[in-house]
Design a protein around this nucleic acid. Sequence first.
RNA 1: GGAGAGGUGGCUGAGUGGCUUAAAGCAGCGGUUUGCUAAACCGUCGUAGUACCUAAAGUGCUACCGGGGGUUCGACUCCCCCCCUCUCCGCCA
Length: 423
Amino acid sequence: MLDIKRIRERPEEIRQGLRARGADASAVDAVLALDTQRRDLLTATETRKSDRNRISKTIGERRKQGEDTADMQAQVRDLGDEISAMDERVREVEAQLEARMLMIPNIPCPHIPVGPDASGNRVVRTWGEPRTFNFQPKSHIELGEKLGIFDFARATRMTGAGFPLLVGAGSRLQRGLIQYMLDLHITEHGYTEIWPPALCNTRSMTGTGQLPKMAEDMYHLVEDDLWMIPTAEVPVTNYYREEIIDRPLPISLTAYTPCFRREAGAAGKGTRGMIRVHQFDKVEMVKFVEPATSYDVLEALTGNAEDVLQRLGLCYRVLELCSGDISFAAAKCYDLELWAPGQDGWLEVSSCSNFEDFQARRAGIRYRDSEGKVQFVHTLNGSGVALPRLVVAIIENGQQEDGSVILPPAIVPYMGGMDRITA
RNA sequence: GGAGAGGUGGCUGAGUGGCUUAAAGCAGCGGUUUGCUAAACCGUCGUAGUACCUAAAGUGCUACCGGGGGUUCGACUCCCCCCCUCUCCGCCA
């Protein structure tokens, strides 16, 4: 959520930011009108409340002295009716204002490229070289089914299309990678590991920005009004929801969770195989930091995700997303994409974002600065990294002409010494 | 799911209709004392909204004692509903 005071004081800046995103800038005027209405109503209401409090106090004093206060009581009773009606109007206007505010996306950081969509993204750097083959590289779908490590047919029967089923060495690889990534983050990158719930309530989902806008992209358990998390960002960021953090910043948390996405409207778009699925696993990194440091921390966070890939020896590139392609809550975002020879393309496995105080405002996450003043923190998160696209890249990059797969040395200890998957 | 107990500030914990933003203690912050640390003593110390102010600071007002509603001139205090925590029972990986 944006700061209403910022919208009030610098509306043109907000309009420009929204336009850069391709969002509706007229929301600014709608919000300002409601804000003015709200403040006018509040002033009038609070004057009456002040009167009521004062007169009620007088009644108490007079009655103690045995005086008759019937007139005053009648007066305050009328005042009370008036206040009730006005409170009701204040609530209505505030509800409208909040509904509008929750739908306004974050303002992009002014230094990121301006562009309409993914075409405006900028490649910041590429690490490693795409592997060259002296045979035609195959897709993970073909490789995985022949190796018996994926089973799409049974997964569909069990649940439905788009749910992954890994078997044998495939399952162990996935589990080993989760362990490898968590170990790396907690021992080398300074993160504290947590194991959160995979379902969150509506307030948490609103806190990080998934709700109200992305409701149809999530699985909703109506009976309990709980939502299956689309990313560990939700529970991990909400760890400190409605708290004034009393520990020194920065705080770095990491968690493995399954993630669930309905991918409504994405049917037919890369739906075969492991690349776009309704359930996937991910190790996530989340940071709570002092505002002045958040852009430096974003670079470090992105570096933590890159480290995962570098140690596996996988070729990847880093994209700086343009204003039209960053997500709803983000002010700046880097995507990490792995080279996948079987796709002849790049696969997004991480998205590292600075949300500035956007999520902190929604979720009420604050800290005390060096002067003891309560301030909103800045929050950041990044995948570190997402499976099973990582599995796809490992398989497609490690494939041999005979269909077997040589595994990166870094993961071999997590495979009980297995360095190659064969049929 | 059933029965009982309880939810007050960063923490512990008083408070059964007006004198309570809320005693007391701890923690925090500022200071005095001090070779350093510790201790002692003094002071200070909730969050948010809003109005005034160019702004900061400050001052006033309003709201907030799990959430919502009710009674009352007036609710932390009385009544109703809901949520959560704890204990016991039931069920269960």
